[in-house]
Structure formats: structure tokens, C-alpha cells
Design a binder for these strands. Sequence first.
DNA 1: TGAGGAAAGTGCGTGGCACGCATGTTTGCG
DNA 2: CGCAAACATGCGTGCCACGCACTTTCCTCA
Lengths: 203, 203
Amino acid sequence: MVGLRERKKQETRAALSWAAIRLIVERGYDRVLVEDIANEAGVSPRTFNNYFGSKAEAVASRHLDRLLRMADTLRERPADEPLWKAITHAMIEEHRPGPEVRAHPRGDRDVWTAGLRLMFEVPAIQAATLRAGAQAAEAVAAAVGARTGTDPATDMYPNLVAATVLAAQDLASKTFMVTGQSINVLIADAMRQIAAGLPPPKP
Amino acid sequence: MVGLRERKKQETRAALSWAAIRLIVERGYDRVLVEDIANEAGVSPRTFNNYFGSKAEAVASRHLDRLLRMADTLRERPADEPLWKAITHAMIEEHRPGPEVRAHPRGDRDVWTAGLRLMFEVPAIQAATLRAGAQAAEAVAAAVGARTGTDPATDMYPNLVAATVLAAQDLASKTFMVTGQSINVLIADAMRQIAAGLPPPKP
DNA sequence: TGAGGAAAGTGCGTGGCACGCATGTTTGCG
DNA sequence: CGCAAACATGCGTGCCACGCACTTTCCTCA
């Protein structure tokens, strides 16, 4: 049962995050005040900091949500599916624009890549994004642990897998941004190389 | 030729970083002002921000330096050494306390682990540390690219290797912090698993 | 060797941010 | 319907990051 309270809260959170991204893409990071974002989202400036600890965190929160959904998706893959196949599926799955993206006005490719660019180029946002990745890695490690019968608290294995997966995700995004190749292909390629032990290319 | 100017600068930088770590370990992150750190390092508060953009960055800078030295070390390994062996060597090499650590009063194990703890537990420092890792990853990718004849700008391979190596480094540190196992053993183990393609454990 | 210039250190001022606290307002539940 | 908890808001505060102008220190080259 999801109360109206919880729903409103998620809406406000999403509105703030969207507003932050949109305004910062338009004007640049330090020409956007917290006040602007709050106004855009129809909420008081003080409320902004009830949801996010900083502008950067607001921008990164959409990334975090996506990664956490990926971890959930991984949990729901059939248990007898091979690990690497399940992970690759989960990753690709979450790169399809969700309903809230389609519902949003002008949530198209340009805005998406512009947002990506922020994540890699604005120092404060890069830091927040990486931190989101670290949080998500815990969730992924838990999922991998559940699937392989290893304990993330004592065993490096699931954490290694999680960290590697997150790295592949970041790298595929970065490469997509630069070369424009299909992100699904990039992800699949990265995962294939990792599962093969990253052997040096034979020249 | 290294002028006195450059030397002084590095000394000030190191003094600020040390002061930041020491004070924050003692009192906690938000009970240390930039002013305190500057005083401790014998420099004006304004000067602090000529070296670092934030308290967190000052703490993370030692980590960054270490990782960059690791990239250099990797470049200097014999060219005919297998890639994974060279990387593992470089990683372990840089985990020996350098001369500036031994020279420093009380630069012992407890301070080291306390500093590590900061990196994982204080949000702002975690973010700065991760960002340092991302910077270092570029240097490592360049070294791997040089060694394998791949181009980090266009090829995912060296970047995948770099990201994975950095992840192993972080994870080994974290595991060391929790379990107290030998960091060298942890690094070697992590690298072995990665080079083997992270196969799921057969129960 | 000493004068010019670049780089580093410093003091001051400012806009903005993160957050504690107190208060009003909405929501869920018995 | 009414109460308690959760949430939104306003206000105030301490700190921070940084621009600018000025002084001091060091390097270079004629």
C-alpha cells in the first residue's frame, strides 16, 4: 500500500532532480542557485535540503535510482541463468528510458547526453555521481552474493563483481558519449571482456 | 632540476594534507575548520584554498598521490613482463610506506587505518576519494595503453583494466580495514580473481 | 650580480550553501 | 473527528570557496 504521502514525496524529489539537471544544463553549474531549483520545482528553498544535501546530489540522484533499479532487476532474473548473462541483461534493461522519462516533456536524447556530460565534467557532480555508484555497488554486491552464495561482508568476490560491473557501466556511458556507439553493444562488449579476464589484445 | 620554489610548494601541500588528516581523525570532520588546518600547517587560511578546493580534497590528496605514483611505477616495469603481473607488482610496491611517511612523526599503522576509515565513512571525503580514483584511472589507463598498444581515447580495453585495478585497490583497502588481513595478500588475491574472469565460485 | 618579472602567500570582501530550530500545515489512523 | 506523526516553511548562523588587489619570495637572464 502506497499512501499519498509517499507518492507526493517521490514526486517532489523527482521534480527537484529534473529541475536541477535542466537548469544546470542550460546555464552551467554555478549559475544556478538552489533557490532557482526550488522555485522551478514549486517548493521552498529550505525544502530542497530536506531532500538533497547539495546541488550535485540532486543531479546524481537520478543516476543512483537507475543503478538501484538495476540491482533489483538482477535479483529478479531467473536463478538458473548464468551470472554474467543475468548481469548483462539487468544492465541493458535499465538503459531503456523508463516511463517517467517518456512522460516528461523533452526527455529526449540530447538532454540525456547533456546530463551525462555533466556527470563527467563538472567536478562536484562527478564526485556525487561516483558516490552514488559506490552506494549502488553495495546493493549489487548483495544481489550477487545472494545469487552465488557468497557473503559481501566477508568475501571479496561479490564486491569485486559489483565494482567491476559499475565500472563497466560508467565506461560504457563515457564511450557512448564520445563515440555515439550503441550503449547496449558497448555494455555487452565490456562485460564480455571482463568475463574473459581482460586478456591483453594480441597484436 | 628542482628549484627551491617547487620544493616548498610540495612541502606546504603535504603539510596541509597531513594537518587535515590528523585534525579530522582527532576531532571529526565538521569540528575542524579550514582555519585550524591552515594554522597547523603554518600558513594563512586563504592559502589553503590555493592548494585544495575543499577540506575533503586535502584529505584525499595523499591517496591521489599514491595512485599516481602507482601509475608511474607501472610504466617502469619491464616491457616484457606480463600485464597482470606488472600491475600487481606496481600495486603492492606503492603500499609500502614511502620515505615521507616514515619521516613523519607517528605515521604509524593506527593513523593509517584511521585515515582509511575517513575515506570510506565521511561522505564528503568518500566523494573526494572516489574522484581522486577517477583521475588516477586516467593515468593508469594511459600506462596500460602504452604497454598493450591500445589507445585509451578510443578503446575501452585500457580503461576497463584501469577501472578494475582501481576497484581492486579500493576493495583490498576496505577489506584490510575490516578484517586486518595482509593488504598484499588481498591485492594479489583480487587481481588473480579478476585475471581469471571473476568466475562464480563452485559450491 | 642585480634588476625585472613570475609565482606564491596574504588580507579583505562577498555570495552562497548546509543545516539547526521553531512553527505552521497536511496526512494517515484509530 | 481528532490526535500524532510527518512534512513544508521561515529564519538565523557559521562556514566555505573564491575573486581581487597587494606584498613577498624566488628564478632567470642579460
